[in-house]
Design a protein around this nucleic acid. Structure first.
Lengths: 163, 163
DNA sequence: GGTGAAACCTAACACCG
DNA sequence: CGGTGTTAGGTTTCACC
């Protein structure tokens, strides 16, 4: 999570509309975006750039279908640690988050827990993943694996356009 | 999770390199991508389009910093249901996944559980979210909320370029 | 399937209201 | 600060290999 600048510049209505539109359709060209909002292209480009420079827009991510690549099975693996030094925990988190197959990793409050969202080939690969990439660490006290039937993107913090 | 066409077309080396490059840098222009791979621009554009048409590349997503928008607190909310009809569960899942503040929703195997990854203004808003948007449903038997200290993108199923 | 070049479209920047 | 015009650069198409 990027340490946010203390709430950066306040966003006006136009900024919010830009974000909404781009959230709905991230592939919009600047020209199309400007047209939708009734702005000049230059103005629109300027605002978008400013949003980037202020860290509001972090970037874009490629959305790849794991199934098509031969990893049709997804799981959420809860990793519970014993209590340990901050450095150890951070180090392990780094390693786990960088493990191939991991789509995303969460470090959550509580009993030093991580959640790993992974994609694998099949059930056997899932077992192997847990055994070879998670429980190999001494610090890991217990794991709990749940198959992911479905994952969905929510609206997030940008309510759908209300026009 | 998009129901994958039964493993679609097999991907060759070039396809994999395209995906790796775009995963590393989703903002690459087609021209730059072609140059990196040593392909003609037209060829490169053609392959990328094919990957899209085959559903391998689903699209791009805008990466917005929730903190900058005034939602600095993130949480993972585990929602456990009683046993219910498929329609009821699906309906509830739809509703929850579409609730403002929800970044992503998981439907996992087990005791009919959902996980909601949410972003909120502060602790009070988090409490209100759980009370007003989750536990209001009769079907919800119990919830468990954990603060998210950090979330990280993993490499996923596309191992970093090995060149 | 891959290529190169022309025609078309978009973005960047300096300038003007 | 928002709008316009020019130039540089990117994408698409198509005949050809």
């Amino acid at each position: 999570m990027a340490k946010a600048q203390p709430s950066a510049a306040a966003l006006d209505t136009v900024d919010r509309r830009i974000l909404s539109e781009l959230a709905d359709n991230p592939e919009l060209t600047n020209k199309a975006l400007a047209t939708r909002l009734g702005l000049a292209e230059s103005t629109c480009a300027y605002r978008v750039r400013a949003l980037r420079d202020n860290g509001v827009i972090v970037g874009r991510r490629l959305d790849v279908d794991a199934s098509s690549l031969g990893y049709p099975l997804q799981a959420l693996i809860k990793v519970r640690l014993g209590s340990h030094s901050k450095e150890h925990v951070e180090r392990l988190y780094d390693d786990l988050a960088a493990t191939p197959g991991v789509i995303q990793a969460f470090h959550v409050a509580g009993a030093d827990d991580f959640y790993l969202h992974v994609a694998v080939e099949d059930a056997e690969a899932l077992r192997d993943f847990v055994l070879h990439h998670v429980t190999v660490y001494r610090v890991v006290r217990q794991t709990e694996t749940q198959l992911v039937f479905d994952r969905r993107e929510g609206p997030g913090v940008l309510p759908r356009e209300t026009r």
